[in-house]
């Protein structure tokens, strides 16, 4: 069952649509990526899901119910820009934000200390936020979002500015939370992380959804785009084939752009076997980066032409 579901959600600022007719569903326990170029409307969308903003049109279902104020204490949120009281200690910050999510003071303290330990931040509780480095305060910000053990975690660009070591800690924790059944929704434009992490994605551009589905489905939809051969012999047969272009040719290794998908790849492989020795053949799926760039460019040109 969908844990969170958006139906025709739109958000307008004057005449400008930050989000336009957005519909998608996030299954429980999935890692869901919201992708899009800068200014696409990702942050607005996450703010609507966390009920910081109310949509102008459309509706949102949270665990089957229309999203309401009282759901906020079941949502954890890490905003893009870190927001903590600089003059207060780590523990005071965590306790206060924990209490706002409905925890008692003692419970918030207990969980804060546990999480500090878990995030390799043991012993920071008495430090003031202003004394922390950027990466350190990012950890605290993350703890704020998970302190009340929310079934839905919403992260806006969670990995920007993290060093590889800290990023590893974050990824571990996210994997743990997902294994426990937490639904995690995050925005990013770092494509490599999406491929590594996400189950499902939506790609938005200029406030609209331009692509959505599971990572597998989307890749399958874009099909095989490239064939790489390691070939010994006369490769002039390639010139006679229609609908291909040779992207790279070096030391007997050839990279071919396809237009006819897997069938075309199979025909080329058959030809290659006739004309020489085929040491290696590989059909390459498009990377998410390529899909992203292509889709964004396509929708932009569609908008220009319409």
């Amino acid at each position: 069952m969908a844990f969170i579901e958006l139906q025709h959600v739109s958000k307008r600022y004057g005449a400008f649509y930050a989000n336009r007719d957005i519909s998608f569903a996030v299954e429980q326990g999935r890692l869901f990526g919201v992708l899009g170029p800068n200014g696409a409307g990702k942050t607005t969308l996450l703010r609507i899901i966390t009920r910081i903003l109310l949509p102008d049109e459309g509706s949102i279902l949270f665990d089957g119910e229309p999203l309401a104020q009282y759901h906020q204490c079941r949502i954890g949120y890490v905003p893009e820009e870190r927001g903590l009281y600089k003059n207060l200690t780590v523990l005071d910050n965590l306790r206060y934000f924990g209490q706002l999510k409905g925890l008692s003071s003692t419970e918030a303290t207990r969980r804060a200390l546990w999480w500090l330990q878990r995030m390799d931040a043991h012993g920071w509780e008495k430090k003031k936020i202003r004394e922390l480095s950027k990466g350190m305060s990012q950890k605290i910000q993350f703890i704020v979002s998970v302190l009340h053990d929310p079934p839905l975690l919403v992260l806006d660009e969670p990995f920007s500015g993290l060093d590889p070591l800290n990023a590893e800690v974050f990824l571990d924790v996210l994997a743990e939370l997902r294994a426990k059944g937490t639904t995690i929704l995050f925005s990013t434009h770092v494509m490599e992380q999406v491929e590594q992490l996400c189950d499902d994605i939506v790609l938005i551009n200029r406030g609209r959804i331009v692509e959505s589905g599971s990572l597998r489905q989307i890749k399958a939809r874009y099909g095989i785009r490239r064939l790489e051969l390691a070939f010994d012999g006369d490769d002039s047969f390639l010139e006679k084939l229609d609908g291909i272009s040779i992207a790279e040719r070096r030391n007997g290794s050839i990279s071919i752009e396809l237009s006819g998908g897997i069938e075309q790849a199979q025909r080329i492989i058959a030809c290659a076997l006739e004309h020489g020795t085929l040491r290696r053949a590989e059909c390459i799926e498009p990377t998410l980066r390529e899909i992203f760039i292509e889709t964004v460019r396509r929708t932009e040109s569609q908008e220009v032409s319409s």
């Binding site: 009920r51 910081i52 820009e81 927001g83 903590l84 600089k86 934000f97 706002l100 999510k101 704020v144």
Partner: peptide, 16 residues
Amino acid sequence: EEKTNRIVEILASSAR
């Protein structure tokens, strides 16, 4: 201060 430090976004994710 809460606005420029973006603390208000955290508050707004917990309260009206």
